[in-house]
Computed example of a mutant assay.
Amino acid sequence: MAARNPYRLVTNLKYWLLSSVAFLAGLGLLYASGTGWFKDHESLGTLANQLGGLLIVSVALATLWDLVGRRSFFYEMLSALRLKHDIHVSGLESVDMDYNKVINWDEHLSSARHLDIFAAWATTWRNNYQTRLQQLASRNDAKIRVCLPDPSHSECVKMLATRFNMGQDDVRSRLNETIEYYKRLDTNIQSGRIEIYVSAAVRVFSAYRIDNRFVVTLYHHKGSRSGSVPALTCREGGTYFEFFKDDLEGVLSASTRIYP
């Protein structure tokens, strides 16, 4: 059996002692209000009667709070504090059903120095932020690493076709188009500012590392791919960031660089 907290025992003893004194004082006032002296002083008798009743009711309410309310409030606050601590440790900054809202893409891409892209093809994302990507690719102090599924790996293509409910030829076409897109983003001069990797790893989410943050979007697993999906942003120093960083670096270490 766990040892009892002596400070809690002292606090509880003081509480019940004061409650008992208040309760007895209330009973005493109620009794005294009916005696002869208070009958001769009706206004004081009424005051004593009401004060005695108030003390008894207050003790009853305080007891109910101690037995039920205080403990419920304590566990509710403890749960909230634990959740806050978990969020702080994870480094989670924002969550939404729209990946465009979990981070200010324009602001972060315009000032980024390092961008990692881990996705199947992310055509919509590329179209939305094409101007920012072009500006980033043109800067000498910036670098973009792109990790894509390998269009020449038959099993990888087959699994992607199943996941996205597409034909295998369509998957290869999209992957090759994405590779050519990032080459053109570098204006095909092989500046070294853009690196393209391919691997057999099948994506179960898309991840974008912008300097010291990761933005991650999940995928549908249902037949119909309509509707929004959860997205999150996490900062460097948190457990989520470390997980996605290690995951990405692990895939890159087993990938083949095809450009430059």
Results as ranks from 00 to 15, higher is better:
residue 197 Y to K: 02
residue 38 F to A: 08
residue 244 F to L: 07
residue 79 S to K: 14
residue 132 R to N: 15
residue 119 A to N: 05
residue 207 A to V: 05
residue 229 V to Y: 06
residue 184 R to E: 15
residue 156 C to N: 07
residue 196 I to H: 03
residue 204 V to M: 10
residue 20 S to I: 01
residue 157 V to R: 03
residue 206 S to E: 11
residue 82 R to D: 13
residue 210 I to D: 04
residue 134 Q to D: 08
residue 204 V to T: 14
residue 146 V to T: 06
residue 35 T to Q: 15
residue 145 R to K: 13
residue 160 L to D: 02
residue 226 S to V: 09
residue 169 D to P: 01
residue 162 T to M: 04
residue 191 S to Q: 11
residue 30 L to T: 07
residue 235 R to C: 11
residue 31 Y to V: 11
residue 239 T to W: 07
residue 205 F to D: 01
residue 131 T to F: 12
residue 35 T to D: 11
residue 155 E to K: 10
residue 246 D to H: 11
residue 228 S to H: 02
residue 22 A to Q: 03
residue 70 R to N: 08
residue 188 N to Q: 13
residue 53 G to L: 14
residue 114 H to C: 07
residue 206 S to N: 11
residue 56 I to K: 09
residue 248 L to H: 14
residue 241 F to Q: 09
residue 157 V to H: 05
residue 94 S to L: 06
residue 113 R to Y: 07
residue 218 L to H: 02
residue 90 S to E: 12
residue 52 G to K: 07
residue 11 T to S: 08
residue 141 D to F: 06
residue 204 V to Y: 12
residue 249 E to S: 05
residue 140 N to M: 06
residue 170 D to T: 15
residue 258 I to F: 04
residue 108 H to A: 06
residue 112 A to I: 11
residue 81 L to T: 06
residue 77 M to C: 05
residue 92 L to N: 06
residue 4 R to P: 00
residue 82 R to M: 12
residue 251 V to Y: 03
residue 76 E to C: 03
residue 241 F to D: 09
residue 224 S to C: 09
residue 27 L to P: 00
residue 176 N to I: 11
residue 238 G to K: 12
residue 73 F to A: 14
residue 216 V to H: 01
residue 27 L to F: 05
residue 182 Y to R: 08
residue 137 A to I: 12
residue 59 V to Y: 05
residue 222 K to A: 13
residue 92 L to D: 07
residue 65 W to Q: 03
residue 50 Q to M: 12
residue 149 P to N: 09
residue 98 D to Y: 09
residue 31 Y to C: 04
residue 80 A to W: 04
residue 18 L to H: 01
residue 148 L to P: 04
residue 45 G to F: 05
residue 178 T to E: 15
residue 111 S to I: 05
residue 229 V to E: 13
residue 237 G to N: 11
residue 33 S to F: 07
residue 236 E to M: 12
residue 22 A to S: 09
residue 126 R to H: 08
residue 114 H to L: 14
residue 153 H to E: 10
residue 70 R to H: 08
residue 96 D to F: 08
residue 237 G to K: 10
residue 21 V to N: 00
residue 239 T to S: 15
residue 125 W to S: 03
residue 45 G to E: 02
residue 112 A to Q: 12
residue 170 D to P: 02
residue 1 M to C: 08
residue 155 E to V: 01
residue 86 D to L: 14
residue 236 E to I: 05
residue 25 A to V: 09
residue 195 E to A: 14
residue 48 A to L: 10
